[in-house]
């Protein structure tokens, strides 16, 4: 065999093998060999964000051997939360700074009289009242929280007591509270509370009504659905699953869940779930709530929930 042919044959074999080189390197070096990580502890928790942050904070404080933060005067501590950072422990509600770059913990009941921007988490060990415009990344309140001036939260809100919004409020991605009273225009993506309502008036579940239309069982609807309780009250004793838009208006009581692959509109008197039971309203698109409304449980939209009481 002439040398040149031998050379060409060798070169041909080399080129044949070359495409496998990156594969073989990866096969032997195993730079990305592990399977995707599946968390064995994974479960659905509506209070996940607030709980995780407070776990970080309380563990850090426990390590500092601070049992009662209230005893301390205003102080900054360097803690390792997700990363090493300063955390302010304040008890002065007449805070001079407008913008705070670190996580801030108020150690007692606090009324926010001036406008502030909290670029990180805002924690209040006590009750919180917002009387002036405030922006925060996240908000944790150990007691009750009343929003009386426009407030914008970017990430999560966790209120152990009752959350009342009397002014415009953008509550970010996730809200967790014991009870939520929405009395001003409010928006968020998810909210969980034993009771979320927009009015103190008795709605259909607390009224004596006659001539109701009763629908029993669970429903799966391929297109859009519109339920109106203007003329006669409607009781749906089951869940509602819909591929299209859901529009419910008037005296309608859905005792189960409402789920839509598109948007959901709930207007003027709709009640979801029943006292003591957690039920959900879940939509891929927007959820619009207008007028008197009440849900016992959870509202979740991949886009936005807008409440206009």
């Amino acid at each position: 065999m002439p040398k040149v042919i031998l050379l060409i044959a060798l070169f041909f074999i080399l080129l044949f093998l070359l495409p496998f080189v990156p594969s073989l390197i990866e096969l032997f070096l195993k730079r990305d060999a592990k399977p995707i990580s599946v968390d064995p502890e994974r479960k659905k928790e509506p209070d996940y964000f607030g709980k995780s942050f407070m776990y970080l904070l309380s563990t850090a404080l426990k390590d500092l051997k601070i049992q009662e933060v209230e005893k301390y005067n205003s102080v900054y501590l360097k803690l390792k939360l997700n990363r090493e950072e300063w955390v302010g422990f304040l008890n002065d509600e007449n805070l001079a700074e407008n913008t705070l770059d670190t996580p801030v913990v108020f150690t007692k009941d606090t009324v926010f009289l001036q406008n502030h921007t909290f670029k990180r988490e805002l924690v209040v060990f006590g009750n919180a009242v917002f009387k002036n415009t405030c922006i925060a990344r996240s908000l944790y309140v150990q007691g009750n929280c009343i929003i009386e001036a426009p407030v914008r939260i970017a990430r999560w809100v966790h209120v152990e007591g009752t959350l009342i919004t009397k002014s415009n409020a953008d509550l970010g991605v996730s809200v967790y509270t014991r009870e939520m009273k929405i009395r001003g225009w409010t928006t968020f993506k998810r909210a969980y509370a034993k009771k979320i309502d927009t009015s103190d008036d008795p709605l259909i579940d607390k009224k004596n009504v006659e001539g109701t239309i009763n629908l029993q069982g669970n429903f799966s609807i391929t297109g859009n659905i519109s339920i109106g309780g203007k003329d006669r009250p409607v009781f749906v004793d089951g869940d509602l699953f819909c591929d299209g838009d859901v529009q419910i208006e008037g005296d309608v009581w859905i005792k189960g869940n409402v789920f839509s692959q598109k948007s959901i509109t709930l207007k003027n008197g709709v009640v979801i779930g029943r006292e003591g039971k957690v039920k959900s309203v879940v939509a891929k698109g927007e959820i619009l709530i207008k007028g008197p409304f009440r849900i016992y449980g959870y509202i979740h939209s991949e886009k936005r929930v807008e409440v206009n009481p």
Binding site: T59, L64, K78, L79, N82
Partner: peptide, 14 residues
Amino acid sequence: AYSKIFEVEKPVIG
């Protein structure tokens, strides 16, 4: 004054 660093476990957010 409080510059001691305390490590806590990072929460796993999947």
